[in-house]
């Protein structure tokens, strides 16, 4: 829906119609209109595209930086490991959203900076996971064998280490996509993320809360959109965890296969 929305919808999500402010849901405007008379349905659908791209971009960014850091820490060990993990520990000792808020204030409030900030805030999680898996693999025989055969460090990392880190990474990526969407909504709500008139869900809510008393649909609908999309990523993450982790297989939805 979010992917194909703009192809189907001809309403401009930023088109204002001051004569039709804060209308309740009707057949003309399925979700009603907001404080500037913009069609809420169009805005929520476009917001979905924004939220999906926030999720994808920040998670990719977190992976792109976090995975190499984790590999380097585990593979080289010693001081490299100590220093990198110290930094990761320090980053993990902030609540994620606090870290994202501080980073986005440094970069300046905008949608793209919000993506970067969330990606940076999530990075230590990936570094931790990869380091853990890589450490346990480093001394195993197939890695030793590859080394004995004369494989280069880069080849061992790419061909042997990374594939083994994939299952936990895929699960975390799915869960953290949901988390990234929520974080972006937080930043938008605090006025530090996407700026109006962008139809980002959190930004819409930060404006809409002023009309909570008179037109609650302006708050209820975008919020419900956030809950539904995050819920689906979390369900996906749970399902993937069950499918990919043999120890957990069958504990979540016994006898019903993977959802």
């Amino acid at each position: 829906m979010a992917l194909f929305g703009p192809l189907v919808l001809d309403q401009d999500p930023t088109l204002t119609d001051l004569g039709a402010r804060l209308q309740s849901p009707s057949t003309a405007h399925w979700f009603g209109t907001d404080e500037l008379g913009r069609d809420l349905f169009a805005r929520v659908v476009h917001g979905g595209r924004i939220s999906l791209s926030i999720g994808l971009v920040s998670v990719s960014l977190g992976l792109l930086v976090g995975v190499p850091l984790g590999v380097i820490a585990a593979y080289y060990g010693g001081w490299t490991d100590k220093i990198l993990m110290r930094v990761v520990d320090i980053m993990l000792s902030f609540p994620t959203i606090l870290l994202a808020i501080v980073v986005v204030t440094v970069l300046g409030p905008s949608l793209y900076n919000a993506m970067v900030a969330i990606g940076i805030a999530q990075m230590p999680v990936y570094a931790r996971i990869v380091r853990g898996v890589a450490l346990s693999l480093r001394e195993q025989e197939f890695i030793q064998a590859a080394r004995a055969l004369g494989a280069s460090d880069a080849r061992i990392v790419v061909r042997h280490l990374i594939p083994n880190c994939l299952p936990p990474l895929i699960v975390q990526s799915s869960l953290l996509t949901g988390a990234a969407i929520i974080s972006a909504a937080y930043l938008g709500f605090l006025g530090l993320g996407a700026q109006p008139p962008s139809p980002e869900w959190g930004t819409m809510l930060s404006k809409g809360r002023l009309y909570l008393r008179s037109s609650p649909h302006v708050v209820l609908i975008p919020g419900a959109a956030i809950v539904l999309s995050v819920l689906s990523f979390n369900l996906l993450g749970d399902g993937l965890r069950e499918a990919l982790d043999p120890r957990l297989r069958g504990t979540l939805f016994r006898g019903r296969g993977v959802r």
Binding site: L212, R213, P216, L220, G223, V227, L231, N234
Partner: peptide, 21 residues
């Protein structure tokens, strides 16, 4: 899972809508 998936400020706004407004 819904609790985990709901943005905090939205929970707040919905509660506010129900119990205050």
């Amino acid at each position: 899972l819904t609790g985990v998936s709901t943005p905090i400020f939205w929970t707040g706004l919905v509660l506010m809508l129900i119990f205050s407004v």
